[in-house]
Design a protein around this nucleic acid. Sequence first.
DNA 1: ATAAGTACTAACCTTTTTGTAAGTATAAAA
DNA 2: TTTTATACTTACAAAAAGGTTAGTACTTAT
Lengths: 108, 108
Amino acid sequence: METIKVEARCPIRTTLELVGGKWKLLIIYQLFEKPLRLSELKRQIPDISEKMLIQELKNLIDSKLVERKNFGEVPPRVEYSLSEIGRKVMPLIAEMRSYAQEYENQIM
Amino acid sequence: METIKVEARCPIRTTLELVGGKWKLLIIYQLFEKPLRLSELKRQIPDISEKMLIQELKNLIDSKLVERKNFGEVPPRVEYSLSEIGRKVMPLIAEMRSYAQEYENQIM
DNA sequence: ATAAGTACTAACCTTTTTGTAAGTATAAAA
DNA sequence: TTTTATACTTACAAAAAGGTTAGTACTTAT
């Protein structure tokens, strides 16, 4: 482990800005298998509000982790998918899961 | 990757609760090398307020990631260190750093 | 007597994040 | 003509997170 200097910009903070918060990782995780529509995402993450879902999707699109495809149909059909760099957060999610498991083993 | 069902309790959420937020991972990272006193931590994370530092340390102690040792001296001397399960978040931090780097390569 | 060092605590305030509820647009189906 | 479906938007409110400032306690050094 090389040293990370904790400054205004540091790698920990960069990643925290990209995927920090209550919802972003959950959304990314859901998009891993295949692109999903808004309504499908809502179904998979039952306790997110529509507003937060849309807001966080926008956020992820702005930072290029997610892509939006509008099919231009009526009623509207829009699909969200992971970009290449979006897919690369998967190892992080895998680490989080594995940490949660170690934690529960140790504590419980 | 096996499926994680996104429910009230899921591994992503568990880990988010343990180390989510603006400061916890930075504190854990600083304690990796060796135990530090409050004043030393403050120096290493220049933009954290004393209140947040103490508050987050308490939080980490409650969840058993950090241990507190009071030397019972005057003026007070207290050292904070990572517990065994606290040390195990290091791979997660390593992933975050590596993700930040990939991200910057790709985007910039 | 006063100041200095250390690890806090408490009161108060601001900002950010999250949530709720209602409304918009469009075309097809009933 | 009303309902249905979908992907939003807007206004407002509540809750959580974060920040500022001042103060406490204790002992040694000045």
